[in-house]
């Protein structure tokens, strides 16, 4: 007497032939399937930072890809590795995605060597987003330190695309040196066309710098803040957003109206690998965007 255990062949399920939609998190997806994307333009912003404009090749996949400011994608160079990168461009642009990559390790170093025409793999979008719609009808403070302008930039685009929904919108941006202020070619447009107020500050000025010098919190003197009617998005290194948020807290801004984006090591983007896990919180699923109250309650976040 024998009994053969029936085989369940998952490889014959419909999802195997479908384009994975990473916004449908509860469905069975080919979680490792990447969209092939061509680099339309690779722009060297600084010696360390490069902006890539990429287009998902397959029209069906491209049409399906839909993201919100603050979310990230996993960018892969097959055989080299995969990294989590925030979306830096406009989320209403369904033709191409903009990502800005700092050269720090193996994968980012290799991606920096890619020129226009080369390809990368994309999975996503993943993670939480800045609650832009919740901010309707209020003043918005967009505060960035250093590379923090990268995830913040997609919310700048959002604000422009929905400008009548918001009252005063102010960008405060600080960097170590004037040369490290990213996207400086766009500031004029942000001020004049997007109708935003923008202040920049650097810690180490060069001979051409005429603006203020010091830490980003110094810019608060120039900005009237109505704590009862303002939302803030703060992106930057942990020391920076802690200082800024504490400052805003002192001005009376509720912690649940301040949003920060955390950076942690991620290997999957899907709440499985635990590399970004802190207790029950997964930076990739519950973040990267958190309100400041949640961050305060995270052991080890700052």
């Amino acid at each position: 007497m024998t009994l053969k255990i029936p085989r369940y062949d998952i490889n014959r399920e419909p999802f195997m032939t479908q384009t994975p939609d990473f916004n449908r998190k509860s469905q069975l997806l080919q979680t490792e399937r990447t969209y092939k994307a061509r680099i339309n333009a690779a722009i060297q912003l600084t010696p360390e930072e490069k902006l890539f404009q990429i287009q998902i090749l397959d029209p069906k996949e491209r049409a399906q890809f839909s993201c919100l400011p603050g979310q990230f994608v996993m960018v892969e160079l097959p055989g080299c590795g995969e990294i989590a990168i925030s979306i830096s461009g406009s989320c209403s642009n369904h033709e191409f995605i903009e990502i800005c990559i700092r050269k720090v390790g193996k994968v980012t170093g290799m991606i920096h060597r890619l020129e226009a025409g080369a390809m990368v793999g994309i999975r996503g979008p993943f993670g939480t987003h800045f609650p832009m719609r919740e901010m309707n009808g209020s003043n918005v403070l967009l505060i960035a330190g250093g590379l923090g302008i990268v995830p913040l930039r997609s919310s700048i685009y959002w604000v422009n695309e929905h400008r009548p929904d918001y009252k005063d919108v102010t960008i405060l941006y600080g960097a170590r040196t004037p040369k490290l202020l990213l996207f400086d070619y766009q500031y004029e447009e942000w001020r004049k066309v997007f109708n935003l107020t923008m202040h920049t500050i650097v810690e180490e000025p060069d001979e051409n710098w005429t603006g203020p010098v010091g830490l980003i919190t110094q810019l608060f003197d120039q900005v009237p803040i109505d704590p009862d009617d303002t939302f803030a998005i703060v992106c930057g290194p942990p020391v920076m957003f802690k200082f800024v948020c504490d400052h805003l807290s002192a001005l009376g801004l509720p912690m649940q109206r301040m949003f920060v984006s955390l950076e942690r090591r991620m290997h999957c983007g899907m709440g499985k690998c635990c590399r970004c896990n802190v207790g029950s919180t997964f930076t990739c699923l519950d973040g990267p965007v958190f309100d400041y109250w949640s961050v305060m309650n995270l052991q080890e976040a700052i």
């Binding site: 160079l77 055989g79 890619l114 025409g117 080369a118 390809m119």
Partner: peptide, 8 residues
Amino acid sequence: MKYLGIEL
């Protein structure tokens, strides 16, 4: 040798 467009 070229690897995904990168000259090695």
